[in-house]
């Protein structure tokens, strides 16, 4: 009998199960995405998943690790899906491939593979691509416009030359431009009504709550993220309603919901102590707001997450919880 030690009873859980639940929680958002923006995202997801698995397998082989065990853990697929969902739905296929390869090979395996990466791989991919291909990464279908599937696939697979006029900037970008043009901005509800992004965000919210309920993530990160972002947005909006969008717009626009429940909650690169999680997520929320409103990029989640990733060791070290019985000492 091999040497084994207690506990002999183990909870029925595994990394694969955790990752599967994350993927499951993304499904409502994806469905909404397909219905409201178009089925192109399915192609993106497929491309990203295949690329990720291939890259993961190659890296595991190179690093001489057990293939079956790690390929099945689902972490590469989660990364792939996050890349696909944060990239524009009409990005050319090779852009997605480049992003995923970067995430899996450089951001994950070169740092030691599962559990070792100090930065969120999907966000590294996003940051690298938006810096390298700013134009392609900024082309989102116009708000409320449902794309014809054929056309979308054409764009993705590059069958027909892309017409710049067919896509527009993200709603955030549009807003930024609009505000700069001093056009003012209407209340939250009209914006919500016809906006695909916001509906998808609400679906992500539902998926995120599912994760909290399943105890895959704790409440700390989403709450602090959305709280901090909403608070800052609200204060600025109250101060100058004409110059700043209302907080609901910010929370439901761009990648805020996806970021709060699925990206900032990446356990490997995030803070781990309860207080640390609050600080980390609040930092991400504030930075994301500042970058998206005052910075030059359409959204700030990726950079905010990466910046806060750098601070994680410091945050964790200074927020060690007091152990049992030591609270008043």
């Amino acid at each position: 009998m091999e040497f084994s030690t207690s506990p002999y009873l183990l909870k029925d859980t595994s990394v694969r199960r955790v990752m599967t639940q994350v993927l499951l929680a993304l499904v409502p958002g994806i469905i909404a995405y397909v219905l409201l923006i178009g089925p192109g995202i399915l192609a993106q997801l497929a491309i990203a998943t295949l690329t990720a698995l291939a890259a993961e397998a190659a890296m595991l082989r190179l690093r001489d690790k057990p293939l079956a065990l790690f390929l099945g853990d689902g972490s590469a697929v989660v990364t792939a899906w996050l890349v696909a969902l944060t990239f524009p739905p009409v990005a050319p296929w090779w852009l997605t491939v480049v992003g995923v390869l970067f995430a899996i090979i450089i951001a994950k395996h070169l740092y030691g593979g599962l559990g070792q990466n100090p930065f969120n791989p999907a966000m590294i991919a996003f940051a690298v691509c938006i810096v390298s291909f700013p134009a392609l990464m900024s082309q989102w279908p116009g708000a409320g416009s449902h794309l014809a599937p054929g056309q979308q696939f054409d764009w993705i697979f590059g069958l027909t030359p892309r017409l710049d006029g067919m896509t527009s900037a993200t709603p955030l970008d549009a807003l930024k431009t609009a505000l700069r043009a001093d056009e003012g901005h209407s209340g939250p509800l009209p914006f919500l009504a016809g906006n695909a992004q916001a509906v998808i965000a609400l679906c992500y919210l539902a998926g995120g709550l599912f994760l909290v309920w399943r105890k895959v993530i704790t409440w700390h990160i989403p709450t602090a993220f959305l709280g901090a972002m909403g608070l800052l947005a609200g204060l600025l909006w109250l101060w100058q309603p004409a110059g700043f969008a209302n907080p609901v717009f910010h929370l439901l626009g761009g990648g805020a919901m996806l970021g709060a429940f699925f990206i900032a909650t990446d356990p490997v690169s995030g803070a781990t102590t309860p207080r640390g999680k609050l600080i980390f997520a609040a930092g991400v929320g504030l930075l994301a707001y500042i970058i998206r409103v005052f910075g030059g990029y359409p959204d700030g989640i990726a950079f905010a997450v990466l910046i806060m990733n750098i601070c994680v060791p410091l945050i964790d070290m200074t927020t060690q919880p007091k152990v049992f019985g030591m609270k008043d000492q």
Partner: peptide, 15 residues
Amino acid sequence: FPPKAPEMPCIRCGA
């Protein structure tokens, strides 16, 4: 008491 699954790297999930 089924044999334990192989040890994987810690994913810092905090569980």
